[in-house]
Design a protein around this nucleic acid. Sequence first.
DNA 1: CTTAGGTTTAAGGTGTACCTTATAATAACT
DNA 2: AGTTATTATAAGGTACACCTTAAACCTAAG
Lengths: 224, 224
Amino acid sequence: MSIRTGSRESPEMYLKSIYQLGVGDAPVPISTLSNRLGISPVSATEMIHRMEKRRLVKHIPYKGVSLTKRGLKQALAVLRRHRLWERFLTDRLGLPWEQVHDVACSLEHSVGPEVTEPLAADLGEPATCPHGNPIPTAEGEMPSERGLRLHELSAGQRAVVDVIRPENAEILEHLASHGVTLGAELELIEIEPLDGARTISVGSKQVVIGKELASCVVVHPIHA
Amino acid sequence: MSIRTGSRESPEMYLKSIYQLGVGDAPVPISTLSNRLGISPVSATEMIHRMEKRRLVKHIPYKGVSLTKRGLKQALAVLRRHRLWERFLTDRLGLPWEQVHDVACSLEHSVGPEVTEPLAADLGEPATCPHGNPIPTAEGEMPSERGLRLHELSAGQRAVVDVIRPENAEILEHLASHGVTLGAELELIEIEPLDGARTISVGSKQVVIGKELASCVVVHPIHA
DNA sequence: CTTAGGTTTAAGGTGTACCTTATAATAACT
DNA sequence: AGTTATTATAAGGTACACCTTAAACCTAAG
């Protein structure tokens, strides 16, 4: 009847964020991190120090943070749990696409492999979360997830939507309302000068989305 | 991307324990509570004070704690989540009977009705947890759970096991290894003097279990 | 009615995870 | 090289949930 959960909650969020913000092996600036987590830079620095003592991250002053081998392993484990729970919530409970992310965020810290592995089995060892992101393997391998971003397309190119990231309810709803959903086929019509907003055609409609938003959409090009 | 879970974890454990330790409307002594939770009486008193401010419990000094209407409602909600997760873990993931309690203990604090109600639906609105305990309704009603305890039987009486409580892995495993499982039919053979250990026959075997342990087993008598 | 034992309050501490304000150090740009 | 902006550290605080030790208090039992 122990009561302690041993608040591994926050550090896990840091790990996940560092992993997701990291491009290649470049260290993630603490400001970027604190920004994403909605935490003051000072507090984030403190936390990073604590995590460094536990050998989860390496901090290069004035450069940023990167994950150690241990940290990476743990980050991928959290990510796996997160995405499996998302699948569970949509596939088994029928919760809507846009809502599952937040719920999965609280579930991901609550259980270990003794639950997530049977869960993965029950779900049929899915390869991706409902938003199309790949699920790390139980062994801690991340399937390559390099795709083209919508804003990297050039005018006239056709492509299919693979992933939408980050899994923010607002973003997901907005894109969905414009017809940009997983598997949707689209064509890039025009790139606006200055702002770089993209005009794309989806189905029979034409919609305009900003460059930032476009960069949330991962696609693979198809031959027109 | 909020990071705060708003540690409702511990208070919820207190609520659950108070509910489960409470017999009728008698207040639960803080020592009993602190004992169950493995926490010092001083700390428990502190927590009770905090919870009193939030109008979750009423503390009568030197008597004990009882739940307010709000506290009761919340306790039953936690219990519902707990027992639904237990069902999920056994029915859907095939985890063993004796292990699901601890896992459910961490899951029960992570999600609200937006998840547990669809979960209940998916599980077929079960009425009891895998250990036989009744699941409170979504409206916060607790189905009556008064049964006879094994130690209340007299020699010669036959009965069927309905519930085992508390859901402690050690207890569950020990009883199971003696053939005392849900639905098992048993007969009380003899009550040992002084200690009050019970000799019972289960299946074709005779086993002896202590009085304390016997009180964990809820049964309903049958006509021999 | 007194006293032993359980209960409560008080006082001081720990560790985690956040906050603000202010100062120091560095990097990067002109 | 000097200034600016970012980044880090220092100092002091809050809140939660636990801890110990010690003193005050009540209750119930002899």
